[in-house]
Amino acid sequence: TYYTVKSGDTLNKIAAQYGVSVANLRSWSGISGDLIFVGQKLIVKKG
């Protein structure tokens, strides 16, 4: 599943919304830090 980052989103908010960890969200999407951008597509795998 892809999630497109919206204004005001954080990795914590997105992870909580999908019931996954921030570490997994980073790993799946190839992100090393906490910086995400509006319009960026993140990969989300539901448990």
Score class of each variant (00 low, 15 high):
7 S>I: 14
23 A>K: 10
15 A>Y: 02
12 N>K: 14
19 G>H: 10
16 A>I: 11
14 I>C: 02
46 K>I: 15
22 V>C: 08
39 G>K: 02
30 G>A: 09
18 Y>A: 06
35 L>R: 12
44 V>W: 04
2 Y>N: 07
27 S>F: 12
1 T>V: 15
39 G>C: 05
45 K>H: 14
18 Y>V: 09
31 I>C: 05
25 L>F: 03
28 W>H: 04
43 I>E: 06
24 N>A: 12
23 A>C: 12
9 D>V: 01
13 K>T: 15
7 S>F: 13
37 F>D: 07
4 T>W: 11
32 S>G: 09
15 A>S: 08
4 T>G: 02
47 G>N: 13
42 L>K: 01
10 T>G: 02
30 G>D: 11
24 N>Y: 07
5 V>F: 03
8 G>K: 05
6 K>R: 11
41 K>W: 07
10 T>R: 03
28 W>V: 04
37 F>E: 10
47 G>I: 13
45 K>F: 14
11 L>V: 07
32 S>H: 12
6 K>T: 09
47 G>R: 10
39 G>T: 04
12 N>T: 15
7 S>Q: 15
33 G>Y: 06
44 V>E: 01
7 S>T: 13
36 I>W: 03
43 I>L: 15
33 G>L: 08
3 Y>A: 03
40 Q>D: 08
4 T>C: 10
45 K>R: 13
27 S>G: 09
32 S>V: 14
31 I>L: 14
19 G>E: 09
41 K>S: 09
11 L>T: 02
41 K>Q: 14
7 S>H: 14
40 Q>S: 04
45 K>V: 11
21 S>T: 14
25 L>T: 00
34 D>V: 07
14 I>S: 00
12 N>V: 15
29 S>Y: 03
37 F>Q: 10
21 S>A: 07
18 Y>M: 10
20 V>Y: 03
46 K>S: 13
35 L>Q: 14
12 N>F: 14
45 K>Q: 13
44 V>C: 04
38 V>R: 05
25 L>I: 15
35 L>P: 08
22 V>T: 09
6 K>E: 09
37 F>W: 11
25 L>N: 01
3 Y>N: 01
23 A>N: 10
32 S>Q: 13
21 S>H: 05
14 I>W: 02
29 S>E: 02
30 G>S: 09
4 T>K: 07
26 R>S: 08
42 L>F: 03
6 K>V: 11
30 G>H: 10
3 Y>L: 04
24 N>Q: 15
25 L>S: 00
40 Q>E: 06
41 K>C: 11
23 A>M: 09
32 S>C: 12
15 A>F: 03
28 W>Y: 06
16 A>Y: 10
18 Y>P: 00
34 D>P: 07
22 V>P: 08
17 Q>R: 12
24 N>M: 12
4 T>A: 07
9 D>S: 01
12 N>M: 14
2 Y>G: 06
39 G>N: 06
45 K>S: 13
30 G>M: 08
4 T>V: 14
11 L>R: 00
16 A>C: 11
5 V>S: 02
33 G>D: 11
21 S>L: 08
10 T>V: 04
41 K>H: 10
30 G>C: 11
19 G>D: 09
31 I>H: 03
2 Y>D: 07
5 V>N: 00
27 S>I: 14
17 Q>L: 14
20 V>H: 03
25 L>E: 00
5 V>R: 00
35 L>S: 14
9 D>H: 02
3 Y>G: 01
39 G>V: 04
7 S>A: 15
31 I>P: 01
34 D>M: 09
5 V>M: 02
5 V>I: 06
28 W>A: 06
22 V>K: 07
3 Y>P: 01
43 I>Y: 10
22 V>D: 04
24 N>G: 06
29 S>I: 05
36 I>C: 05
21 S>P: 07
37 F>G: 06
30 G>E: 09
23 A>T: 10
10 T>F: 03
23 A>Q: 13
27 S>M: 14
10 T>D: 08
16 A>D: 11
4 T>R: 08
40 Q>P: 02
20 V>N: 02
9 D>G: 02
34 D>Q: 07
36 I>Q: 02
28 W>G: 03
14 I>E: 00
43 I>V: 13
24 N>E: 15
31 I>E: 03
15 A>Q: 01
29 S>M: 04
24 N>S: 11
24 N>L: 13
15 A>V: 02
9 D>C: 05
5 V>E: 00
9 D>P: 01
1 T>C: 15
30 G>F: 07
43 I>D: 04
11 L>C: 04
28 W>E: 05
39 G>E: 04
7 S>M: 14
1 T>K: 11
3 Y>S: 00
23 A>R: 08
10 T>P: 00
42 L>T: 02
24 N>C: 13
26 R>N: 05
41 K>I: 15
19 G>F: 07
24 N>H: 10
21 S>E: 08
42 L>G: 00
9 D>W: 03
39 G>L: 03
45 K>G: 12
27 S>T: 12
44 V>I: 15
25 L>V: 10
32 S>I: 14
33 G>N: 10
17 Q>E: 13
46 K>A: 14
11 L>M: 07
43 I>F: 12
29 S>Q: 06
25 L>H: 00
16 A>L: 13
25 L>P: 00
26 R>I: 14
24 N>P: 01
22 V>Q: 05
14 I>K: 00
11 L>H: 02
27 S>A: 15
42 L>S: 00
4 T>F: 12
41 K>G: 06
33 G>K: 06
25 L>A: 00
14 I>L: 07
47 G>D: 14
7 S>K: 14
38 V>K: 07
9 D>N: 02
29 S>R: 01
33 G>Q: 08
16 A>W: 10
20 V>P: 00
7 S>C: 13
24 N>W: 08
47 G>A: 13
42 L>M: 07
13 K>E: 11
20 V>R: 00
38 V>S: 07
1 T>D: 12
30 G>T: 06
43 I>R: 09
29 S>F: 04
37 F>A: 09
6 K>A: 09
18 Y>T: 08
43 I>M: 11
41 K>L: 15
8 G>Q: 05
31 I>K: 02
22 V>H: 03
3 Y>C: 06
2 Y>S: 09
6 K>P: 01
26 R>A: 09
11 L>P: 02
38 V>M: 07
38 V>L: 08
12 N>D: 15
17 Q>C: 12
10 T>C: 06
2 Y>P: 07
18 Y>I: 09
20 V>M: 08
38 V>T: 08
7 S>G: 09
31 I>V: 10
5 V>H: 02
32 S>L: 11
13 K>L: 11
19 G>Q: 10
19 G>R: 09
2 Y>A: 08
43 I>H: 08
39 G>M: 03
3 Y>Q: 02
47 G>Y: 12
15 A>M: 02
1 T>H: 13
21 S>N: 06
27 S>H: 14
28 W>Q: 05
31 I>Y: 05
11 L>N: 00
3 Y>W: 03
30 G>R: 07
46 K>E: 13
14 I>F: 01
35 L>C: 11
37 F>Y: 14
14 I>H: 00
33 G>R: 05
22 V>G: 03
17 Q>S: 11
2 Y>E: 12
21 S>W: 05
17 Q>P: 00
18 Y>F: 15
11 L>S: 01
28 W>F: 05
40 Q>T: 06
30 G>P: 04
26 R>G: 04
19 G>N: 12
20 V>E: 08
1 T>M: 14
26 R>H: 06
2 Y>I: 14
33 G>E: 08
13 K>A: 13
47 G>L: 13
5 V>K: 01
36 I>D: 01
27 S>N: 13
33 G>M: 07
41 K>T: 13
1 T>G: 10
45 K>L: 12
23 A>D: 15
23 A>P: 09
12 N>I: 15
8 G>F: 05
5 V>L: 03
18 Y>K: 04
14 I>P: 00
38 V>I: 11
5 V>P: 01
28 W>D: 06
15 A>E: 01
15 A>I: 02
22 V>S: 06
26 R>P: 02
44 V>N: 01
34 D>A: 08
14 I>G: 00
15 A>N: 00
37 F>C: 15
37 F>L: 09
38 V>W: 04
44 V>F: 06
22 V>M: 08
44 V>L: 09
42 L>P: 01
34 D>C: 09
20 V>S: 03
42 L>D: 00
9 D>I: 02
12 N>R: 12
27 S>L: 15
41 K>R: 13
35 L>K: 14
46 K>W: 15
16 A>T: 11
18 Y>S: 05
36 I>F: 06
8 G>C: 04
1 T>I: 15
14 I>D: 00
17 Q>H: 11
19 G>A: 09
14 I>M: 01
36 I>L: 12
22 V>R: 04
9 D>Q: 01
29 S>V: 05
22 V>F: 03
32 S>R: 10
46 K>G: 14
46 K>T: 13
29 S>P: 02
20 V>C: 10
25 L>K: 00
12 N>L: 14
35 L>A: 14
40 Q>R: 03
1 T>R: 12
8 G>P: 02
41 K>P: 05
29 S>D: 02
22 V>I: 11
12 N>Y: 14
34 D>W: 10
5 V>W: 05
17 Q>G: 07
11 L>F: 05
28 W>R: 02
4 T>H: 08
18 Y>Q: 07
8 G>D: 06
32 S>P: 08
40 Q>C: 06
45 K>A: 13
36 I>E: 01
47 G>K: 10
26 R>K: 15
38 V>N: 06
26 R>E: 08
17 Q>W: 12
26 R>D: 02
7 S>N: 12
35 L>N: 14
45 K>T: 10
38 V>C: 07
46 K>C: 15
23 A>L: 08
1 T>N: 12
25 L>C: 04
47 G>E: 14
47 G>V: 13
42 L>I: 12
5 V>A: 04
36 I>G: 01
30 G>I: 05
47 G>C: 11
41 K>N: 09
32 S>A: 11
2 Y>M: 11
9 D>F: 01
8 G>S: 05
30 G>Y: 06
36 I>V: 09
24 N>K: 10
46 K>Y: 14
43 I>S: 07
31 I>M: 09
27 S>D: 15
39 G>P: 00
17 Q>Y: 12
